[in-house]
Design a protein around this nucleic acid. Structure first.
Length: 700
DNA sequence: AGCTGCCGTG
């Protein structure tokens, strides 16, 4: 309804004819469905000019309710405060308004005030009070409200019952929800849907399918919401078979025949992505008559999650060319893709787009930007975005701590970690992992240990396997191998693969064969198919020149058909990506690259370079080993970059694995020899080579 | 006057 039309029908408020309460009330009633603030405000102006509001509880109540329904709680509260005689209708509207507009605390405050005023809560009050308790994870208060519901005899109301279910699911208390559900005298579709989606959200996938089965047995027909939850469940457990069945069900019944433009199809795309069937997702997507923003985002995020960055960028390009306008969600996935392939230039242009469209206020977008800049080697830009963020949640702090960590700036990581503790953000396992890992990359043993022991004592968080692996890594890298081993032995929980891997790689670094054999043994027991443990152990034997043992390990690898992931490096040049594998001769500049490397190796030798061949796995002549080192992918990428960029430009290389020890030495020397800054990102951190030195200071 | 609800950040 347009306001212009409406007001034309009404008497002029400035005229002597006053607007009747009933007229305004009906008008507001219809407006409350339109959820338009401007209409409500104009009407508000209309009635107040008439001088009717102050003394008209009926109208004021209607207006407050209208504002609350629009989600404009500030206006609603102003009017609410003026009303002397508050009826239950008004209280309920306000409690609902706050609960549904991200102010659950205010909702509960008002509920308490309502009780103090002697107003009895009813079946319209409790659903929102319960919602607020659930959102705030107020378990104690939630249970008390549940008790009051029982006392008030409202437990049998289906709306109240459904809200109780939902609240217990938010608490993660599936059993309590089940008990309530079993006792419900009447269940509607929402009750069933709440059960199904509640189970899914709590990881009870089997339970969700059981409820669905029961639902069908008693003849309840599911709707889009049911299917949505089930599709999400299929994705969680990667049950492609069930997913396809539900897809069929969606095609036959779902969305009232709106399958090709309804949102359900997007969830099917998402399901296929989560079931690692990207081709099914793609096929469905391409066949869509109407591709909305969520369709695009579902597929793009699917490619991003599986690490197909180039596919993400291609789809993004297609999207921009077409009519779809990328939104915050799109941008987050695209930034994630830039992050994966260190596409700094592209990431920066996405940042401009973010600014242009005003997406920067979104916390998730800011987080993605910081992550992109940090992972593309531009810590300064990451810091700028971080500093400018008006609202910093846990994810923001975590990504910034991680960013400092991978750049070897442990002190800054620790410092902002403590800065975060000074705010009202509560730390979780994730940020402890980030700060501990930052400590280990910088050799901050004491700081790291202190934080580790604070996890339990001060923050009541139980350290998980990841924290232990960080601590072992921290101690191990710094050479405290026995202490690291003692930590593992003291663990209350079973040490996992990561813990032993951390000890094993520390053993390689400090050449401790005895502990290496222990950790490798544990690693093989935990995962006989993991290749990295075998590779690491054979490296350790090779360093000790125990070729027989190397051979034995390699035989084991062969027998179990384990394959090490092929190592590669790449560089971005004029928005093109050039990828190099070990000993790669496919690049069209291949001859020039090898010539450049030969030239560099000679110059390095004159400067006193002695190759460290311990990382070469094969028992061959020393000379051949040296030659093999010069085939490493990071050197090919570096030579290529040196040939194709102007003197003095910074070179950025990305490698999918850890940089090898000899390459590290060589790149240090080349940075001095060619007077270049070389920024190299490997699997776990950044190395900034300048003037013969590296920012990692030997910790990597 | 209500309860359940697609794609996204560490």
């Amino acid at each position: 309804m347009s306001l212009l039309k409406t007001t034309a029908l009404l008497p002029n408020p400035c005229s002597t004819t006053a607007l009747s309460s009933l007229q305004c009330g009906t008008l507001l009633q219809s407006l409350s469905n339109s959820k338009s603030l401007t209409q409500a405000q104009q009407l508000h102006a209309l009635v107040t000019t008439g001088g009717t509001l102050r003394h008209n509880t009926y109208l004021a109540t209607k207006l407050a309710t209208c504002y609350a329904a629009c989600g404009h709680m500030l206006h609603a509260q102003l009017i609410f405060d003026q009303i002397v005689l508050k009826n239950s209708f008004l209280w309920n509207s306000m409690i609902r308004g706050y609960a549904c507009n991200h102010s659950p605390t205010k909702s509960l405050v008002l509920y308490r005030e309502m009780l103090r005023f002697g107003q009895k809560p009813d079946n319209f009050t409790y659903p929102f009070v319960l919602k607020a308790c659930g959102d705030l994870l107020f378990r104690g208060i939630g249970r008390k409200v549940h008790a009051l519901v029982v006392v008030g005899g409202l437990e049998e109301n289906v709306y109240v019952g459904n809200s109780i279910l939902s609240m217990y699911f938010k608490f993660g208390d599936v059993a309590a929800a089940q008990v309530v559900f079993d006792k419900m005298p009447m269940r509607d579709l929402t009750s069933w849907n709440t059960m199904v989606s509640g189970c899914v959200k709590n990881g009870e996938t089997v339970g969700a399918f059981e409820i669905f089965g029961e639902m069908r047995r008693v003849g309840v027909v599911g709707d889009g919401t049911t299917l949505l939850a089930l599709l999400s469940a299929c994705g969680d457990v990667m049950d492609l078979k069930m997913g396809k069945e539900i897809h069929g069900y969606v095609v036959r019944n779902g969305g009232n025949g709106r399958v090709h433009n309804g949102f359900l199809v997007n969830s099917v795309i998402d399901m296929y992505c989560n079931c690692e069937s990207i081709s099914c997702a793609r096929k469905l997507f391409e066949g869509l008559i109407v591709k909305d923003i969520v369709s695009w985002n579902s597929l793009i995020s699917g490619y991003e999650k599986r690490g197909d960055a180039f596919e993400v960028l291609e789809l993004f390009g297609r999207m921009v060319e077409g009519s779809a306008v990328p939104d915050e969600v799109t941008v987050i996935s695209v930034l994630g893709a830039c992050n994966q392939i260190s596409a700094l230039r592209l990431g920066t242009s996405v940042h401009s787009y973010v600014v242009k469209r005003g997406y920067g206020v979104n916390v998730a977008v800011g987080t993605a930007l910081i992550g992109m800049y940090a992972n593309c080697g531009s810590l300064i830009c990451a810091c700028c975005v971080f500093d400018e963020m008006p609202e910093k949640n846990l994810a923001v702090w975590t990504v910034m701590v991680t960013g400092f960590g991978i750049h070897g700036r442990g002190r800054e990581a620790v410092s902002i970690f403590y800065e975060m503790l000074g705010t009202n953000v509560t730390p979780d396992e994730g940020i402890f992992t980030a700060v501990l890992s930052a400590c280990s990359h910088s050799g901050l043993v004491e700081e790291g240990k202190e934080i580790f022991y604070k996890i339990t004592r001060v923050y009541n968080v139980d350290p998980g396997p990841t924290h232990y692996s960080c601590l072992v890594d921290l101690l191990g890298r710094a050479g405290y191998l026995d202490e690291a081993y003692a930590v593992i032995e003291s663990m209350k929980l079973e040490p996992n693969e990561d813990v032993w891997t951390a000890l094993l790689s520390a053993c390689r670094l400090h050449r401790n064969v005895k502990l290496a054999e222990i950790s490798a043994q544990k690693l093989f027991e935990l995962n006989p198919n993991g290749a990295s443990g075998y590779v690491c152990l054979s490296n350790i034997y090779a360093a000790e020149r125990r070729w027989k043992d190397v051979e034995n390990v390699r035989a084991l690898v062969k027998k179990s058909r384990l394959k090490k992931a092929p190592s590669y490096s790449f560089v971005e040049l004029n928005k093109m990506f050039h990828q190099f594998f070990v000993g790669d001769t496919y690049h069209k500049q291949s001859d020039d690259i090898y010539a450049k490397l030969k030239d560099l190796s000679e110059q390095l030798k004159k400067a006193g370079y002695k190759p460290d061949t311990t990382s070469v796995l094969y028992d061959v002549e020393e000379e051949i080993k040296e030659k093999m080192l010069w085939d490493h992918s990071e050197r090919l990428a570096l030579a290529f970059a040196l040939i194709n960029t102007a003197p003095g430009t910074t070179i950025r290389i990305t490698k999918n694995l850890r940089v090898c020890g000899d390459c590290h030495t060589v790149i240090k020397m080349i940075s001095k020899l060619t007077d270049r800054e070389i920024i190299m990102r490997d699997i776990s951190r950044f190395h900034r080579f300048r003037d013969g030195l590296c920012s990692c200071g030997g910790y990597w």
